[in-house]
Design a protein around this nucleic acid. Structure first.
Length: 331
DNA sequence: AACTTTTACAACCGCATCATT
DNA sequence: AAATGATGCGGTTGTAAAAGT
């Protein structure tokens, strides 16, 4: 025989929201006797509740060390990072977030973080970009309208350009070359047999090993190999996929309106007018929930920003190609 | 003002594992 | 060792409040 049952079903025990009186009874009992032996808590505390419900009420709501209120920016970052490693192990995540319960984290994830990741084209399960969201056909059609890329696609094969690393490199090189000489670019690519072209075109997996970035303008290795510019290298952590950058007008890089998975270092960028410097550490998560303001040069007030404001962060990530960048060095 | 939709979060349910007999 | 219940955990639901129409 096993133990006596904790609480029988259909035994008339109360269900639904807890009243303040019930809470007080439970608090008083636990303060006196300590938490544990939940089977006997209802009886001893004079509660018409199942012991299981008493435990949940205590651990999720009544404990004095529970931190109430909105999640901070740092907490949100931690949740996202831990979730990318631990998955839906809410109790394990909660163990690393003092004052937060697994239930609270789970609810916050489902209500906020998960939805935002989905909106930004990130699969909340894999933390990788979603293929359906990326809409590669539109990406390709827009880029392939460019005659230069069209030439490349016909010569390298469209399939090759499905490789995000290659696409990003081509984009970068085309921008650097100001789209004037695709043939030269093609020759360069063929000559150097860039590594990106050899990466399997399955963008659902990230097989690249991305070292910490050093300098976004460091495009040329001492041996002459071109590095993917760090500006498009948003840190591939936990199989997160890098996304290609768009190139807007006036030689500006415009980041995809997407979630920025992780930045391994303090990559700093300057806004178009040079007035705003900010790092990806500051924008990788929802700024609204953060009590920490951006640095003083930022125009963004996190505490008052809206969802739209947050999503417009991506539009701020515009970067100018330095005037002094001598493109002839690369070709 | 009334109604509908969305959001936030507490609570419940069911399953897996652990503990006890 | 097996049986049984307790406990812990993750998924889901219910509901009140807020926002939108």
């Amino acid at each position: 025989m096993g133990r006596a049952p904790c609480c029988d079903k259909n035994n008339g025990l109360k269900k639904g929201p807890w009243t303040p009186e019930e809470d007080m009874k439970l608090i008083n009992y636990i303060q006196t006797h300590g938490a544990g032996d939940w089977r006997n808590v209802p009886k001893n505390a004079g509660l018409q509740r199942c012991g299981k419900r008493c435990r949940l009420r205590w651990t999720n709501y009544l404990r004095s060390d529970i931190k109430r209120g909105r999640f901070s920016f740092e907490e949100e970052e931690t949740i996202i990072q831990l979730h990318s490693v631990l998955g839906n192990k809410w109790s394990a995540i909660a163990a690393r977030l003092p004052g937060r319960t697994d239930n609270e984290i789970k609810n916050y994830w489902n209500a906020h973080i998960r939805k935002r990741l989905l909106r930004n084209g990130i699969d909340p399960v894999t933390h990788s970009p979603r293929l359906d969201f990326l809409d590669l056909s539109s990406i390709l059609s827009s880029t392939l309208c460019n005659q230069a890329l069209f030439s490349l696609s016909s010569l390298l094969g469209t399939q090759a350009l499905l490789n995000p690393n290659l696409l990003r490199l081509v984009n970068t090189l085309l921008a650097i070359n100001k789209l004037e000489n695709p043939e030269t670019l093609l020759q360069y690519l063929q000559k150097h047999q860039c590594q990106a072209a050899q990466t399997p075109p399955d963008i659902s997996t990230c097989t690249t090993s991305t070292p910490p970035s050093t300098n976004q303008t460091q495009l040329l290795q001492p041996n002459g190999e071109v590095l993917l510019p760090e500006i498009g290298n948003f840190g591939c952590q936990n199989s997160q996929q890098n996304l290609p950058l768009n190139f807007g007008d006036n030689n500006t890089f415009v980041s995809q309106p997407s979630y920025v998975p992780h930045v391994a270092d303090n990559s700093n960028f300057q806004s178009l007018d040079g007035s705003q410097n900010f790092s990806f550490d500051s924008v990788m998560s929802d700024p609204m929930s953060s009590p920490t303001p951006l640095n003083s040069s930022s125009l963004i007030n996190r505490s008052s920003s809206t969802e739209d404001d947050k999503e417009s962060y991506s539009s701020m990530l515009k970067f100018e190609i330095p005037e002094n960048l001598d493109i002839s060095d690369f070709m």
